[in-house]
Write a protein that binds this DNA or RNA. Structure first.
Lengths: 146, 146
DNA sequence: TATTGTTATACTCTATAACTATA
DNA sequence: TATAGTTATAGAGTATAACAATA
């Protein structure tokens, strides 16, 4: 098992800087589509055609389940999502409406669209970045499971 | 000028996933030190020995200047920072107290410390990640200037 | 006049605790 | 009894608008 090297520590700090930038992009996008950050995050967390229990949304948002009620109320009021009943009749699952799916895709496209600086990298540099990040995310997912 | 390739787009999406992870780490840390997210972000934005105007803090926090008043009030009440007057007597600058500096360093160390998954990468992989991110951050900073 | 920071107000996010309806 | 979601409440974050002090 390799230790974290000087490169590993430097990479962590650089990641932090890139993430600050991404945060700004999210903040700007959310304002433009007229949602609050939590409403937007909820929309983005929903898979089309799959009902997501309120408790799962609370975990994703890192907040108490009681808050999800109000957030979801507003999404329903705007016609972006609807509550549906599950087998266990205590749980209420949230699904995107057609309008909600469209908004989600629109946000996703813009959020995941490459920042302006990406085109300053050569093809080879973009490939190297992709490969390194892919490897990092892979081990991160593995670590999360254990 | 190279275009954004498939690798560039994939890298952007992966960056998004790492961001989610980092967000969780920040959230956990903030709770542990007993600050709110905005209070913690403010502390982290202050340079030791340098007075930072309220307006600069507002820009960093991406919120209206009127909100900074209350956030700073609480930091002062906890003895982590103090308001000092600047040459232009309209502006009030915020500086860290000794206690505030200590807390900032403690948070910074933990936030920038490599996540657990980093040690799953080999030395070579860590070096590749570092180099790719270094290049990305360099062009990002350049793009930010223009 | 213009700008910095503050105050006032209203809405959103947040955690805690008490409640309901299911299980 | 335990769990999923809701309601009630209080503290914190947010934008807008109006204000004081200074430029």
């Amino acid at each position: 098992m390799p230790k974290v090297t000087k490169d590993g520590r430097a990479a962590t700090t650089l990641l932090f800087e890139l993430l600050q930038e991404h945060k700004r992009a999210f903040h700007t996008l959310v304002k433009e589509v007229g949602l609050t950050p939590q409403q937007a995050a909820t929309i983005l967390s929903l898979e089309p055609g799959v009902g997501t229990p309120m408790s799962v949304i609370a975990e994703f948002l890192m907040c108490d389940a009681s808050n999800v009620t109000g957030i979801v109320d507003k999404l329903e009021a705007r016609g972006l999502a609807t509550r549906v009943s599950a087998e266990d009749r205590r749980v209420k699952a949230l699904t995107l409406t057609t309008e909600g799916e469209a908004l989600k895709e629109s946000m996703r496209t813009r959020l995941h669209s490459p920042p302006a600086w990406m085109e300053e990298l050569t093809r080879d540099e973009q490939r190297a970045l992709h490969e390194s990040l892919q490897r990092a995310v892979t081990v991160m997912r593995e670590a999360g499971k254990s």
